[in-house]
């Protein structure tokens, strides 16, 4: 029961991060391998503001989100857009964007190491809390709650607003979206920026209960990618379920076998997905 509760709570936060990556990869068609570093930056901001200004991480997200939005918009506009325009094929863009975002991830790590090379440890809402007979820390619950709220808002925005509809249209088919008068370049930039903001907020939330450090980003990139692929690229419902599965499996492995094997268990899931459902949990078999 403890495992299920903690797994679910962890999964909720993972789902938020995966949603961010989904916006970037599913809509803007950029496989952003600096995603995890963005998350860590969100965590670093939270750590700083908490330690030096006693600002609650739950408020920090309102500072992190706009900064991350603008930052990601600039990255898309000035670093990634040129790659999109020069690429002759999708494959070319794939390789270029992978290498470019690797570069960015290293630069982020390099900068963060200079700011703070140690762990970002702080204690926020660490008091235990009883839920359904299990004890969990309040911060986990708060993070989960915020993740649900943000995820829900994003879901409503995507499905019930005009801009959200444009985003979904581009995600399904950029070429057709162009034909109906959607400015694909602008929507892609918007989705990329929004995805980045969501990821950074996810990082702020995660930093309340997981100790981060400058170099841990790549692990989160891996996890987010595994979730997105398992859920099916662009499929929000799939991503949520995939995130919960990953959260549960990781918590189970960490509790029952060894915390050192969480990445190995994520890989096992990844391998199964690649072998049996590379199109995602709910995806149709490609024809």
């Amino acid at each position: 029961m403890d495992i299920i509760i903690s797994g679910l709570l962890l999964g909720g936060t993972y789902a938020l991060i995966a949603m961010g990556l989904n916006l970037q990869y599913g809509v803007a068609r950029i496989m952003n391998l600096a995603n995890g570093e963005l998350l860590v930056l969100g965590g670093l901001a939270s750590f700083w503001l908490f330690v030096f200004a006693q600002i609650s991480p739950l408020l920090t997200i309102f500072i992190v989100a706009p900064f991350a939005f603008v930052g990601n918009w600039l990255i898309y506009r000035f670093l990634l857009r040129p790659l999109v325009s020069r690429a002759k094929t999708q494959g070319q863009l794939e390789v270029d964007s992978i290498l470019a975002t690797f570069g960015m991830s290293f630069i982020f790590v390099g900068i963060m190491v200079m700011i703070r090379g140690e762990y970002f440890t702080y204690s926020f809402l660490a008091a235990p809390f009883e839920i359904l007979g299990s004890t969990v820390a309040q911060n986990r619950l708060a993070a989960f709650g915020m993740a649900v709220v943000i995820g829900l808002a994003l879901y409503l925005w995507l499905n019930h607003s005009r801009a959200g509809m444009a985003v979904r249209a581009v995600s399904v088919s950029p070429d057709t979206a162009k034909l109906v008068g959607i400015n694909v370049a602008r929507v892609s930039a918007l989705a990329f920026a929004l995805g980045g903001a969501v990821t950074a907020v996810g990082g702020t939330l995660i930093s309340t209960f997981i100790t981060l450090d400058a170099s841990v980003g790549v692990i989160f990139t891996m996890k987010a990618l595994i979730i997105v692929i398992m859920g099916g690229v662009g499929d929000i419902r799939g991503a949520i379920i995939a995130a919960v599965i990953l959260g549960l499996v990781e918590t189970a492995v960490a509790t029952l076998i060894d915390p050192g094997l969480t990445l190995a268990s994520a890989y096992l899931i990844f391998l199964l997905v690649l072998l049996f459902r590379p199109q995602g949990l709910f995806g149709k078999r490609p024809t």
Binding site: L79, P82, D96, F102, G103, M104, I107, G110, I111
Partner: peptide
Amino acid sequence: FSTLFLGLAFLLIVY
């Protein structure tokens, strides 16, 4: 600066 340098090397190659 070694990590930062790696990142810049990647960007140099791509751009």
